[in-house]
């Protein structure tokens, strides 16, 4: 099977999954307490105003009619209009997605670097202080809620030391041209180094928070799998040829240790997104996560549904990319 048809198959297989997600979120939203009309108008609005608004929003139709209307819209690529802002949900998601992407990419890089190097070195020095430190670190950070950890970092680095901003993404107006929406990239493309530093200062705390929490899982996986591989003959054989530690550890042990890790890395990315929702809220990061939380507060059904579907699609895309990278690392993988 070629790569192209593999990707196509994966996307087709993802469609039923997205559909189920859509059904669940649609009905779940209508089961939980809270009325979108009241959330917008407030409890003291006159009854006829409420009824009129309900009619405008189409919420007076039978629920199945609402559902099929929505389904029709989704399959024609229309995620509806936000009941709160009256803007198309797709537009709003487009505006906010780069912020989330930037945050998750940096968090992912931080998690990967900590997990990879600390995990590999711990495995090499099993049961030595570095390894014990890694185990304590990963248990602590795995059990700490991400928002609490974020608050603590805020308290230390923003409130006491005043090294970094408490939250937000950029002071006010960007000093560089926004092309991709990924400010780090935009600043580099404009050659605006002062702007880049500013962007990084805002990005630092949220991405470190999310990255460190995610790294706890990576660290454990890399360490445990590498310990397993290090006990195998291929490592002894590599050493028996006189190879240096760097080659033995990273070129042979970690490379093989990553094979099983790749299969669960996609799922880890899903939990990274879940963490992003909390991180964004903690740091007022204007991404999709904080958007979702705000929309839930106002019972903005189309926006919530749209965001969830978007998350679903995003995870599908990421897991396909990870599968492709996996195939590059492990030649045994066939599509």
């Amino acid at each position: 099977m070629s790569l192209r048809s593999y990707i196509l198959t994966r996307i087709i297989l993802a469609l039923p999954m997205i559909f189920i997600l859509l059904v669940v979120i649609f009905f779940l939203l209508r089961i939980i307490p809270g009325d979108p009309v009241l959330a917008i108008l407030g409890g003291k609005a006159p009854l006829e105003v409420i009824e009129q608004k309900r009619h405008e929003m189409g919420l007076d139709k039978p629920i199945m009619v609402q559902f099929f209307d929505y389904l029709k819209d989704v399959f024609t690529g229309n995620l509806g209009t936000s009941t709160l802002t009256n803007r198309p949900v797709i537009e709003e998601l487009k505006d906010r997605f780069p912020a989330t992407l930037e945050l998750t990419i940096f968090a992912f890089i931080i998690a990967l670097l900590i997990g990879l190097f600390w995990g590999a070195e711990s495995a090499w020095r099993k049961d030595e202080p570095l390894d014990i430190g890694a185990r304590v670190y990963s248990v602590l950070l795995y059990s700490v809620p991400v928002f609490w950890f974020g608050l603590i970092l805020q308290l230390i680095f923003a409130s006491y030391l005043r090294w970094l901003p408490v939250g937000g993404r950029i002071p006010a107006v960007t000093s560089f041209e926004v092309r991709t929406g990924l400010y780090v990239l935009d600043a580099i493309m404009s050659g605006d180094w002062k702007g880049l530093l500013d962007v990084l200062r805002y990005l630092a705390l949220p991405s470190i928070t999310l990255g460190m929490v995610t790294s706890s899982i990576f660290l454990r996986m890399v360490r445990n799998n590498t310990v397993l591989i290090l006990s195998k003959d291929l490592v002894k054989a590599a050493r028996a040829r006189g190879l240096k530690k760097r080659v033995v550890l990273y070129g042979h042990a970690v490379k093989n240790a990553f094979v099983p890790i790749f299969t669960i890395i996609g799922m880890q990315f899903a939990s990274l997104l879940a963490g992003a929702i909390l991180t964004e809220t903690t740091f007022s990061w204007p991404g999709i996560g904080s958007y979702l939380v705000m929309k839930i507060r106002y019972r903005d059904f189309p926006a919530i549904q749209g965001t969830i579907i978007f998350f679903g699609l995003f995870i599908v895309v990421i897991s396909i990319i990870i599968d492709i990278v996996n195939a590059l690392v492990d030649p045994r993988v066939r599509y």
């Binding site: 291929l234 028996a240 042979h252 492990d330 045994r332």
Partner: peptide, 16 residues
């Protein structure tokens, strides 16, 4: 000194 191991299935890195 060169060394040859028992099981070539596990002593050669399969993915290099």
């Amino acid at each position: 000194v060169g060394m040859i191991f028992q099981d070539p299935m596990t002593s050669l890195n399969p993915i290099t």
